[in-house]
């Protein structure tokens, strides 16, 4: 068992330092790159918290959709092949549901403030409530 603070707690401390202490001291390119670095830490934080669950859900959907097993990369490659061969299309039951779900999960880690993501999220939450 590793000692604490947890990775997420450590990251939070780094993010707070970068945003609240370092950034106000800087200007121009250094300030910009410091903001980008804090944003990158935010992605790492969301990735650590959510990616394992999202990957498991994606794996379950892909296995059901393709009726085959493999690693996530193998299954995604197989899905691409079927789409490229025209064997799976926009009309294939479950395909666009899977793509929407996977994409929403990815953007929720990468860029949760992105307006088209927030718009999509609203639609999905309305549907599921």
């Amino acid at each position: 068992m590793q000692d604490e603070p947890t990775p997420i707690e450590l990251l939070d401390a780094v993010i707070t330092y970068l945003r609240d202490e370092l950034m106000p001291e800087l200007s121009g390119r250094s300030a910009f790159l410091t903001r980008v670095s804090a944003n990158a830490c935010d992605i790492v934080r969301r990735h650590l918290e959510n990616a394992a669950g999202y990957d498991a859900a994606e794996m379950a959907r892909l296995t059901a959709l393709l009726k085959t097993t493999g690693t996530l990369e193998e299954l995604n490659r197989e899905l691409c092949t079927r789409i490229e061969q025209g064997a799976m299309t926009l009309d294939t039951p479950g395909l666009t549901d899977h793509l929407w779900a996977t994409t929403i999960e990815k953007v929720s880690v990468d860029q949760p403030q992105y307006a088209p993501y927030r718009r999509a999220l609203k639609t999905f939450q309305a549907k599921n409530s």
């Binding site: 980008v36 926009l90 929403i104 990468d110 999905f124 309305a126």
Partner: peptide, 26 residues
């Protein structure tokens, strides 16, 4: 650079744009 790395993580934004165009919901 961190700048380059972070742009690479923006491909998923583009996937949501494409889905809005090709398979619109709601």
């Amino acid at each position: 650079t961190i700048e380059r790395a972070m742009i690479a993580r923006r491909a998923s934004e583009n996937e949501i744009d494409l889905l809005h165009l090709l398979a619109p919901r709601g």
